[in-house]
Amino acid sequence: MSGENVRGRRLGAAAVTATAVAAAGVAVGGWTLVADATTRAAANRWTLVTGAVLAYEVSFLAYHLDADRPAAALAPPNLVTLTRGLLYAATAGFLVVPPSPAVRWAPAVCYGVGVSLDVVDGRLARWTGQTTPLGEKLDHAFDTLGFLVAPLVGVAWGRLPVAYLTLSAARYVYRAGCWWHRRRGRPVGDLPESRVRRPLAALQMGFVTVALTPILPAALVHPASLLIVSPSLATFVRDYLSVTGRLDGRSVE
């Protein structure tokens, strides 16, 4: 093994270790804040859920380190993405914390800052020329994670209707459908070009952030969510039909 590969692997291990230390800091610091704001029992539940998500994120990073470029985890854009993951893990913990005045803004702040960093990491990667396969995997995985945990917290806190979780499930149903299609020996094509996919994802992120805040009444948020989620669900259906050959794959205008 060359000296460069050894150095790269050491940097990769250092990146995983640093992420694990940061995750532990989030868990400990979060427990302290939640315990001070609510109760120790609530803080214990928050830490249990957040810790499980943090363990997944650290494991995901370790598993997907590029064997040829493990040091890519230390690239500034990827560090921003990892920070997003920590914030989404903190958001997840509020799934088992009852809403109260002391913490009512916490999920919206954690998720909202994570969403803001979603804009930063991509632009930073393009600006610095540090777009990496690891960064793309982290970005996609944490986007999916955020779309899962934030709506779950919204439903648990009464801020979103259960029907909105169809969007959280859509990504997993899409992947399962593609897997089943391949298992039956049928080809699965590439996603068609789309001008609406990213804007719709940004719309959903922004809407969930607003829905988690205590500003708008739930009586207004619930019906609005059903209208806003519809085009994104339609896009998932359209993408699945395209990659499985049921549509011609032309671009969405």
Rank of each mutant, 00 (worst) to 15 (best):
G29E: 02
L124F: 10
A18R: 01
A43V: 01
T244M: 09
P77F: 06
V162I: 14
N78C: 06
T50I: 05
A92R: 01
A224H: 05
G129P: 10
R9M: 04
N44I: 11
G85K: 03
N5F: 05
R183G: 15
R84I: 11
A42R: 02
P231H: 08
P107T: 10
N44D: 15
V115L: 15
A202R: 14
R45M: 11
P217K: 12
A62C: 02
A13I: 00
G245Y: 09
A92P: 07
V221G: 03
P70I: 01
S225D: 08
P77C: 12
E253L: 14
W179Y: 06
P70T: 02
P76R: 09
R198G: 11
A169V: 11
R104W: 12
S251T: 10
L74H: 00
T47I: 01
S242L: 11
D248E: 11
A106P: 12
D139R: 08
L74A: 03
G206Q: 14
A71W: 04
W127Q: 15
G29T: 03
A211R: 08
L124P: 03
E193C: 05
R69A: 07
L124W: 06
Y240H: 11
Y164K: 04
S242G: 12
F94Y: 15
E193M: 08
V229E: 12
V103M: 07
V243M: 09
A15V: 00
A52R: 04
A20E: 00
R10T: 09
L191G: 11
A55L: 03
V149C: 05
T17N: 00
D139W: 04
V53D: 00
L226T: 07
S251R: 13
L82M: 13
A218M: 13
A27Q: 04
A23W: 01
L79T: 05
R183M: 14
R123S: 14
V162G: 10
A169R: 06
P187G: 10
S230H: 09
S251I: 08
R7S: 04
A170K: 03
S232Q: 13
V155Y: 06
S2W: 00
V28P: 04
V237P: 07
L226C: 09
L220D: 13
A75I: 02
R123E: 15
L87D: 02
W157E: 08
P101T: 11
T19K: 00
H64T: 01
S230I: 08
S230V: 13
L152F: 07
V162H: 10
L220G: 11
V28W: 09
L152D: 07
F236L: 05
S242C: 15
V80S: 04
L148D: 09
A27W: 06
A18Y: 01
G158E: 12
R183K: 15
E57W: 01
T209D: 09
D190H: 13
L160F: 13
K137R: 15
A14I: 02
T144W: 04
